[in-house]
């Protein structure tokens, strides 16, 4: 079974984040593999262990995104495809999906695994767009993924619980943290990753015509923050204080 996992490098969410002069996310600082994509890699590796085959990472991003790709390879993915072009900085979800689709198509995968949404952009639009462009069913928000023959079966998280969703391969799956804690890269894995193939692909090789962007950033402002109210130390009577507050706001 051939499994493609899409991965993205994002600015380290635990580091201070900055904007560029044109109000885009500054990607110049510390960067990491998107934690949501680590679940994708983990899900792909588990399926490979169960069914054999290979796990291919596909990423779009600047040259330094190679570090995030290497992280996925050291977790155990077999090889990677990296689409890198300076003109892609600030690409919107549709352009990103078009580029990923063009890079993935020649691989003819049985399964494409994505995170549900990137941690930095949070649009959640690339997976359904990618499914559409690849002509694949989308079995999404999966906390569990199983492959039986040429069928993919997932437990799809819902507001009430989950749905059992089935799709015919080739299919696209998005995974949540429910698929299990991503494995750490072992020293052996890190060493092995150094010699794994990372195929660089230029934008021009994909034959994508860049459409007009979906949006322009007009401005960025600080979000309204709530003012801190009263803060008390629990001296054994905190419950009474909370109750008094609840009564005061007529919640009790």
């Amino acid at each position: 079974m051939k499994i493609v996992v899409t991965v993205k490098q994002i600015p380290d969410p635990n580091a201070p984040q900055k904007l560029t002069s044109d109000n885009r996310l500054d990607r110049g600082g510390e960067a990491v593999l998107d934690p949501g994509d680590e679940y994708g890699v983990e899900a792909g590796l588990k399926l490979k262990e169960a069914h054999g085959g290979e796990v291919v990472l596909v990423s779009m991003g600047p040259a330094k995104a190679a570090d995030a790709i290497r992280k996925g390879l050291s977790m155990g993915a077999d090889r990677a495809i990296h689409v890198s072009d300076d003109s892609l900085a600030g690409a919107d979800a549709l352009l990103t999906a078009q580029i990923l689709a063009a890079a993935i198509k020649p691989e003819n995968p049985d399964l494409v695994i994505c995170g549900t949404e990137s941690t930095d952009g949070s649009t959640g639009m690339v997976p359904p767009m990618l499914a559409e462009l690849l002509g694949m069913p989308q079995a999404t928000f999966a906390k569990q993924v199983e492959v039986k023959g040429d069928k993919v079966s997932v437990h799809r998280q819902t507001n009430e619980g989950y749905e059992v969703v089935e799709a015919q391969a080739p299919a696209l799956v998005t995974v949540t943290a429910g698929v299990g804690e991503p494995r750490y890269a072992s020293l052996k894995g890190i060493m092995a990753a150094r010699s794994k193939e990372v195929k660089k692909v230029e934008l021009s090789a994909l034959g994508i015509e860049k459409g007009s962007p979906a949006e322009s950033v007009e401005g960025v402002a600080d979000a309204e923050t709530r003012k801190a109210g009263e803060v008390i130390e629990d001296d054994g009577n905190a419950a009474e204080r909370i109750l008094a507050f609840l009564v005061q706001v007529k919640a009790v």
């Binding site: 979800a93 352009l95 359904p128 767009m129 499914a131 459409g211 979906a214 949006e215």
Partner: peptide, 16 residues
């Protein structure tokens, strides 16, 4: 699921 597919079909992008 629907909006993403629709935007890709129409080729218009979206704000999410």
């Amino acid at each position: 699921e629907v909006a993403g597919r629709l935007a890709a079909r129409l080729g218009v992008g979206q704000v999410s």
